[in-house]
Design a protein around this nucleic acid. Sequence first.
DNA 1: TCGCCTCGAGTTCA
DNA 2: CTCGAGGCGA
Length: 184
Amino acid sequence: MGQKSAQKLIEAIEKSKSKPWSRVLYGLGIRHVGSSIAQTVTEKFDSVEKLATAKVTDIEAIYGIGVEIAESTHKWFRVEANQTLIERLKNTGLQFVEAQPAASSNISKKLEGKTFVVTGTLPSLSRDEAKELIQKFAGKVSNSISKNTDYLVVGENAGSKLTKAEKLGIAQLSEEQLLEMVKQ
DNA sequence: TCGCCTCGAGTTCA
DNA sequence: CTCGAGGCGA
């Protein structure tokens, strides 16, 4: 690896230290805890300390979390090696507390109560950006089409989700229409 | 038990 | 992207 790649690697590692607590929790590799569950958990436990000292029943009380995930998580924090790992990561500056989103009280909840699925390549937004946008306006983003889905945001080269959505008669949106929906 | 969902791993493609 | 395994809530 040459100078340039090495420099970029250093910078990327440095950048990773500012990733949110939810992402860090996911990164710990607790069984059954992926990105989605990690997000859910951090909404109720805004710091590692709170999660680490929570009882199984406290974790299980979260909607969407049952015994398996609660016990798996609780157990992980009882392992000594994991506790020292957390200490080390804290010392290197990772985020173990939920960062307060900049006073966004003025943001409307235009998409509240609606469930979206995004498929294909959108013209200007990346899939992640589209998901963030939907969540910002209080919409729910899922990854699989079901009859609970309200809208499928369709881009170029959509796959089987489009077929399934058609079969279920789910409303489709272009990126443009999505943006229109959240316009002030 | 059922339907919905997430996890996690493999695949495809630019 | 796809899909099977398996967890969750009703």
